[in-house]
Amino acid sequence: MIYRTDFKINSLNVRLISPVIFGNIVKTYFDIMDQNEVLLQLQKLLNSNTLISDMLLLNQLPVNSFNAETFHGQSDVIREKRKHYREWKKNSRFHCSLGEIENIRPRTQINRKTGTVDEGYLFNETNYIYDRNKTYCFYVYTKDKKVVDLMETALKVIELTGMGTDISIGTGKIDFIKTETGRIFKEDKQMLALFDNGNEGYQLNLASTIFFKQVMDDVKFIKYKTLRYDGKSLKIVKPPYFYADRGCIIKCKSARPYISEYIQDNQKIFIYTCVFPLKINRPEGKSDGYNPLNQQI
């Protein structure tokens, strides 16, 4: 089944892509459960084929019109070939914006041992400002409802503490829109009807997907935009990784989650990624991709 959670948010200092959503949930697991129980729950998540989408605007999916034909340059001169490629590509559209405003501000870091700022330790930090009049969401596909129930417990804690880092200065305050019974997650049958886990055709991916080797073995990326993520927690600097932005076009016969362990100074973190494939409605005789909900961001 596919479940959806809706929420309002003011600002974040991270992009809520699929791996980051997972990271915040698992961090909360470690806060409320012992390590052995967390590891057991992670295994359940894998066994139940749990997939997590990026943060999206409610009822609006990424737009990615594409041409299935492969580009073949007609010139051996790189400048001419680049010109031909740009002309071939300009009619396509790849749009995944949430309408956020990017804000860059100078920051300092307090040395916890001395209580002062280390000399020269000034850096720029990017945070994202969101429209409180808009509703955002993310989706979870899983074969085990108990996985979603435990995620819901974690989200209730996150609603009280904040999402991401810098929550002490108000960044990451999130308000989940609950059902009449007080639930954060709700079943989404419309999205389930669009879900495509095994079709031979092209699919629209709702998750930002890290280029792990196992992913590259299982998934063929047709049209995508590559971005880089650099992040850190309070105790560990996370390894940077490259990923395909949400809204990419893929071919995947069987979507599944992937978890990688990263250890630094005896500290361990888990890095998660997946694809979240939806059907692309392609009328017969046409090669363009169409938004499954017929809506644009």
Rank of each mutant, 00 (worst) to 15 (best):
E159S: 12
L160I: 10
L160G: 15
T161Q: 08
S168K: 11
T171V: 12
G172K: 00
I174P: 15
D175W: 11
F176G: 13
I177R: 13
I177D: 11
T179P: 02
T179Y: 03
E180N: 15
E180I: 11
T181D: 14
T181V: 08
R183D: 14
I184Q: 08
I184R: 04
F185E: 01
E187W: 10
K189A: 14
Q190Y: 11
Q190P: 01
Q190S: 11
M191T: 03
M191W: 11
A193K: 06
A193G: 10
L194H: 06
F195V: 11
F195T: 02
D196G: 12
G198R: 13
Q203M: 09
Q203T: 02
L206V: 05
L206Y: 12
F211N: 06
Q214T: 11
V215N: 04
M216H: 08
M216K: 13
D217L: 07
D217A: 08
V219M: 12
K220C: 11
Y224L: 12
K225G: 09
T226K: 01
L227H: 10
L227V: 10
R228I: 15
Y229A: 13
Y229W: 08
Y229C: 15
G231P: 05
K232H: 09
K232W: 05
S233P: 00
S233D: 12
L234H: 09
L234V: 13
I236Q: 15
I236C: 12
K238Y: 03
P240Y: 05
P240A: 15
Y241N: 06
F242K: 04
D245S: 11
R246Q: 14
C248M: 04
I249R: 05
I250K: 00
I250R: 00
K251L: 07
C252R: 01
C252L: 07
K253A: 08
K253H: 11
Y262I: 08
Y262V: 13
Y262W: 08
Y262D: 13
D265S: 07
D265R: 05
N266R: 04
I269Y: 03
F270P: 00
I271L: 15
Y272E: 07
C274H: 02
V275A: 04
F276W: 02
F276K: 02
N281H: 07
N281E: 15
K286I: 14
S287I: 09
G289V: 10
G289T: 08
Y290L: 15
N291E: 09
